[in-house]
Amino acid sequence: MRGAVGLTAADPYLQVRDLRVRFATEDGVVRAVNGVSFAVERGRTLGIVGESGSGKSVTSLAVLGLHDPKRATITGEILVGGRDIVGRPDEEVRRLRGRDMAMIFQDPLSALHPYYPVGRQIAEAYRVHHPRAGRAEARERTVQMLDRVGIPQPARRARQYPHEFSGGMRQRAMIAMALVNDPDLLIADEPTTALDVTVQAQILDLLEGLQKEFNSAIVLITHDLGVVSQVADDVLVMYGGRAVEHGSVEQVLRRPQHPYTWGLLASVPSLRGDAAADLVPIPGSPPSLIHLPSGCAFHPRCPYADERSRTEVPELRPVAEGHLVACHRPGVAA
């Protein structure tokens, strides 16, 4: 598969196969991602859901090739537009970053450089992949992008610094920066977590609109199932660095089969009915990635775990067309 270009339009733009990411630390080997596979087509959005430490952000940084090769060991395949980037020299992956695949981060205040005007940072992203573009062209493109993401007075705003922007405006600027080279793949890591609820909705609307316009594949990393139901087409639920449930939004959110997904849904407050009775937290805390529990990593927190859950790692198996679950007792919680 390596190096196989000649991709047809129907093939998924991003394909991740059996991705494993480990970090050697002083306390031991952190097994952050343990065999995750998924694919995203152009024009579609995959939501990756999980608690902190589930491996979702590590997965997204691996796709962009942003892990330090000296510290992280990555195996498996990450095909971006048909090219496997795992183990490729950084210089080769760098050319794809920001051009074919781009990323927006959780906290736009710390993700933007405090010392440079916003417009300059966007223009820089454009010029690095358009070496022949002059300053004027980059500036024009920057203003155009700021306008496109709904920033009023874009020419004036481009000269301002990140601290002069509001949170929502900063995230819009971040999106403008990510989309300035019209990437085929956009990874959004908790893009609305740091924002007010009203602003969250605006940013999600903006992302959806831009996706229609640019026809890019989007990977949306979040712990917020509300966000997933609003914008994602497919969902991947991660726990302890593994995929535990994978399917369409309809399948995973309406007919969850894994007790962990079920727990996540039950811990979302709903506006209907008695909130206190509705809200069921998942007991315990996320597992240590150095000493993962045996068998199903979720078993110490799972009320339905049996002997097999404690000893044998469950495989991802289909329970319906396109709906995969890694559980020895799928559907038991329903």
Partner: peptide
């Protein structure tokens, strides 16, 4: 280890930059 350095790398800037 700052976020803005990660952003700079995510833009595809060369190490030197």
């Amino acid at each position: 280890s700052e976020d803005f350095v990660r952003t700079a790398r995510a833009k595809g800037l060369a190490k030197r930059t």
